[in-house]
Design a protein around this nucleic acid. Structure first.
Lengths: 227, 227
DNA sequence: AAACGTAATTATGAATTCATAATTCAGTCA
DNA sequence: TGACTGAATTATGAATTCATAATTACGTTT
């Protein structure tokens, strides 16, 4: 046990940052919506001061936008923002792959292997919910496995901004199969502890995910136009 | 001109974030030091509320550390943090190099060429101040040239954390010459708009900078031990 | 009725106040 | 003298208050 570790007692505003972030990521507060300061204060039972502090932090993370004298709005996820974000996430995932190969313990790899198997099973039975969960677990384990806090925090920030695009819901059958295949390859590289290889694959995997998202978006807007 | 662009009128806390960030990066507030809330309020002529809001933001950027009921301290730059930060910056620079090659205008490249020449001149006359300035300008121009706001903001955040290490002061003659050579190569790739090539070089350039820093640190601590 | 202008209301940014935790300092006792 | 105790002081987190900007509601005019 590390006795130098400081006692964890979250302050009010830290707690609020967490909660508000969830509201935004979970889509309880929709993009473009005004953040109802007063209501939130009441439902959380806090005064405006800590809530506003939390909003400032969220703004610096890009999850909300502050307009002088007009309060905060949930940031819109623009096409341009996604276009800019994906390449950055892809680079971070590449680095994470490289580092995870070097720094993960055998047990850590074994754990990912288990989640991978669960993910494949979920794919076979077309259980989207379990699939997404396993997929998420694998990516998180790889990021954590990199053992680089800076990398992790920046990845988390970017992932939060992107997750709101909810691009996973319109996962096509093709893309799903392709993603599984990519994950198979990733596992091979991880088992072989081929750092460069895994990094390269993770980068590509992320960019393919983006491409699929763009494609799905285009198709959706086509449908809309037809109405 | 874009008429939809909102009017820029910085609020108090945004202004303070800027100013405080500078105080930390410029080393006016030293790592580990307590941030003197009261004094800063007086010298800036503001109340504690906006200043504290600014501190929360700086904390989320990792520049200061908040301790519950004990205020804020300037974050220490640990060896481990540097070790984690450099590879991440290097990846971002790689991406910036690739994107800059594709997105910079010819005029943009010409401008960088000018600053490069100024940098070489400064090297020849061993004018450290001008050298650092030109170097900084070149890197900034390349990051901006990537035309990716997400990339830019995350790079800025990380650069701020690292700049405080003041690793540039102990620039050895060897490393200096090597850096110039690397910059020459970078210019070649940029002129040729070789995106992959420039990206690769910028990544390596950053990691070499890190290696030189580590070496300089080791030598400094050796000297200390001899005393 | 639609458009404009103005007053009332509300929301926001920032200062101030308040309760409490942390720190300093003085006094006591070994 | 030096370590400990507890009161006084200070600093901090959060609530409240206050001034002002933004929004809404209303009335007037055409």
């Amino acid at each position: 046990m590390n006795l130098t570790e400081s006692i964890k007692r979250p302050t009010l505003h830290e707690e609020l940052v967490e909660r508000l972030r969830n509201l935004v990521v979970e889509d309880a507060l929709k993009p473009g919506e005004k953040v109802p300061e007063k209501d939130l204060c009441e439902s959380f039972g806090v005064s405006r001061t800590p809530l506003r502090e939390a909003l400032k932090v969220l703004a610096s993370e890009g999850l909300v936008v502050l307009q002088a004298n007009r309060g905060a709005r949930v940031a819109e996820v623009t096409r341009e923002e996604l276009e800019n974000t994906f390449p950055v996430i892809a680079m971070l995932e590449q680095l994470a792959g490289e580092l995870a190969c070097r720094n993960l313990s055998d047990a850590g790899i074994a754990h990912i292997e288990k989640r991978h198997d669960a993910m494949v099973k979920a794919f076979i039975s077309r259980d989207r919910k379990s699939y997404f969960q396993a997929n998420q677990d694998i990516h998180n384990a790889l990021i954590e496995g990199a053992q680089n806090e800076i990398l992790e925090s920046h990845h988390r920030m970017l992932a939060a901004r992107v997750r709101r695009a909810r691009f996973m819901v319109n996962l096509s059958e093709e893309r799903w199969a392709q993603a599984i295949q990519e994950h198979e390859q990733m596992m091979e590289k991880l088992r072989a502890r081929d750092a460069e290889g895994l990094g390269q694959l993770m980068k590509t995997h992320m960019m393919n995910k983006y491409a699929a998202h763009i494609k799905a978006m285009a198709e959706t807007s086509d449908e809309v136009e037809q109405h």
